[in-house]
């Protein structure tokens, strides 16, 4: 799965490079827009996680921000950092708590083609990849095991577990310049956990930065940023 993903991203990268090279070789007389190697840095916050924390979910609180640089108007390396805190009680009164920081590093590719004799568009169509990590501490309390037939019971609690969780995300989104240097955009993220739990072992219900603990997950972000 990961192999195919890396191969497909590599093919995208090579294909776009060859395409750009061909254009240059065949039509040297056409003026291409002046593409700068360094095209600025955008600092952004995720409004979706803040809105979701305050409006949709009482149990989950999450904030995140990122810094993305723009290279040759095509390659956009990014670092994202965030913090999440969850306090969830199940219908059977099992209590789960977690809080901690998470981080992601990755690269976006701008899919908008450069038009001949035109200004570079500040609006971007992005396809990218992220590698995320957290080792947030979590606790699960009040897990009751009954022994109906034989009598008596037990209440289990596990505390202060800090497993390192690593995942990757496939990211697809857009980013547009709404006012000079102010950018807004959304992205849809398909997340895949690389560190899975052993069957039957206590595992976190929620992983900061990843979401609910499952082998794959979906995420959405709506970013507002300023480009320097």
């Amino acid at each position: 799965m990961y192999k195919y993903l890396l191969i497909s991203l590599l093919i995208c990268f090579v294909a776009s490079s060859i395409q750009a090279q061909d254009k240059q070789e065949k039509k040297p007389e056409v003026k291409t827009p002046n593409v700068k190697w360094w095209d600025g840095m955008t600092l952004q916050v995720d409004a979706a996680s803040i809105a979701s924390s305050t409006l949709l979910s009482k149990d989950i609180y999450s904030v995140e921000a990122g810094a993305q640089i723009e290279l040759k108007h095509k390659y956009l390396p990014i670092v994202e950092l965030g913090y999440a805190s969850v306090n969830k009680t199940s219908l059977e009164d099992i209590r789960f708590k977690t809080s901690g920081f998470f981080g992601r590093v990755g690269l976006d590719f701008n899919l908008v083609k450069k038009k001949k004799d035109a200004k570079l568009s500040p609006n971007l169509f992005l396809l990218g990849l992220r590698l995320g990590m957290t080792n947030a501490t979590y606790t699960i309390n009040n897990m009751a095991i009954t022994n109906d037939y034989w009598g008596a019971g037990q209440v289990l609690s596990e505390s202060k577990l800090s497993p390192t969780k690593i995942w990757f995300e496939l990211v697809f989104g857009i980013r547009v310049e709404v006012v000079k240097n102010i950018h807004m955009g959304w992205s849809l993220r398909n997340k895949h956990l690389l560190t899975t739990d052993k069957e039957g072992e206590i595992s976190p219900w929620y992983i900061p930065g990843y979401g609910k603990n499952a082998t794959s997950n979906w995420g959405f972000s709506y970013t507002v940023g300023y480009k320097f």
Partner: peptide, 15 residues
């Protein structure tokens, strides 16, 4: 007897 964790919704059982 061994504790076997199912989920937050279901809790733990013994196997």
């Amino acid at each position: 007897n061994t504790d076997y964790y199912l989920s937050l919704e279901c809790g733990c059982m013994k196997v």
